[in-house]
């Protein structure tokens, strides 16, 4: 008798089977359970910290006692508009623009070659070759330029060995971008920024190029277009969202960096350094907080423009 009824009896209820039934009946409950831990971390810890920072920009620092006054005021924001501070913002934005343009010019041929001309093995080499510096050793890569740009370093040696020492001296004598040595000039800072953020430009451009339909390029060639015309009228417009996507990284990373200009460059401050200095040695957290809102606002504007250009589909 029992041998007959056994297969029909429901299987013994274990706690995980009952739990599974609950989740199947209420999928929202499972979703809630999945989302709660990461959202607690990012929503409370991270967003909470960001808002705490923003709130502090409405406090002010008492110049005489060095104590932070917690009555809400716009005075800190007003001091942001001092000419010296505006200089810092302008200098940083110009540097970020220069770095972004140069990165796009160097990155494009790399991405173009890897997409259209490299076989599978070479393509893998290019991919790893860009990935490795993108993910690793930020500080070591900055450090390497201290070695390269030093007066007695490899670059100076190369110029002199080639008998081109006067070219280097000529470049250093140029107004604005020059300086006493490469490691203490705008040019040096620019080179390091360019080097460190370049991989962030290559990958999005390559992603955009990979998505250009082969049929479009063939059609263009069939209709008699010179490869150069095809490049200008077919490939370049379709790759533009990738360039803009890459520029989001190079621009934002340059705006926020405070280590590169500290190690290679003159004594002029950049945005990141200003934030760092005000919160550290100066102890002026309110001004540091106000300063740190500047790159966020610039990036918000930048992202809004990038979105219009379709950059988000290329990320």
């Amino acid at each position: 008798m029992s041998a007959w009824s056994a297969p029909l009896a429901p299987p013994p209820e274990s706690w995980h089977r009952r739990l599974t039934d609950v989740f199947v009946a209420h999928p929202a409950l499972l979703l809630l359970l999945l989302l709660t831990p990461p959202m607690l971390w990012l929503g409370v810890v991270y967003l909470g910290s960001l808002f705490a920072l923003l709130a502090q920009s409405f406090f002010s620092l008492d110049d005489f006692s060095g104590v932070i006054d917690r009555t809400p005021t716009l005075a800190t924001w007003a001091s942001l508009l001092a000419p010296a501070n505006l200089d810092i913002v302008l200098r940083t934005v110009l540097m970020a623009t220069a770095v972004t343009i140069a990165a796009a010019l160097i990155a494009f041929p790399i991405a173009h070659y890897a997409t259209f001309h490299a076989g599978p093995r070479l393509k893998a080499l290019f991919y790893v070759g860009v990935m490795l510096p993108l993910w690793s050793s930020y500080l070591v890569r900055v450090y390497s330029w201290k070695l390269i740009l030093a007066k007695e370093g490899i670059l100076g040696w190369l110029f002199h060995a080639a008998g081109l020492g006067f070219v280097l001296d000529g470049v250093l004598n140029l107004p604005v971008i020059g300086g006493p040595s490469l490691s203490a000039s705008y040019l040096g800072t620019f080179l390091v920024f360019l080097y460190v953020w370049l991989p962030f430009m290559v990958l999005p451009i390559q992603a955009a190029l990979e998505r250009v339909p082969a049929s479009l390029i063939e059609a263009s060639a069939d209709l008699g277009a010179h490869p150069r015309t095809t490049f200008r009228t077919v490939i370049l417009p379709l790759a533009l969202p990738g360039v803009v996507a890459g520029s989001i990284f190079t621009f934002s990373l340059t705006l926020g960096d405070f280590i590169i200009p500290q190690i290679v460059g003159g004594s002029q401050l950049y945005l990141g350094q200003a934030v760092y200095m005000h919160q550290g040695t100066a102890g002026n957290i309110p001004l540091a907080a106000a300063f740190s809102v500047v790159p966020v606002v610039i990036m918000a504007v930048y992202l809004a423009i990038a979105k219009r250009l379709g950059a988000f589909d290329a990320l």
Binding site: P38, M39, L47, S49, L53, Q56, V275, Q279, A289, S292
Partner: peptide, 20 residues
């Protein structure tokens, strides 16, 4: 929200956590 910590410059994440 997930992307924000790397979309914003690292210095902002850092100083926000520090002030918190």
């Amino acid at each position: 929200l997930l992307i924000l910590p790397i979309a914003l410059p690292g210095i902002i994440t850092g100083i926000a956590l520090r002030s918190a």
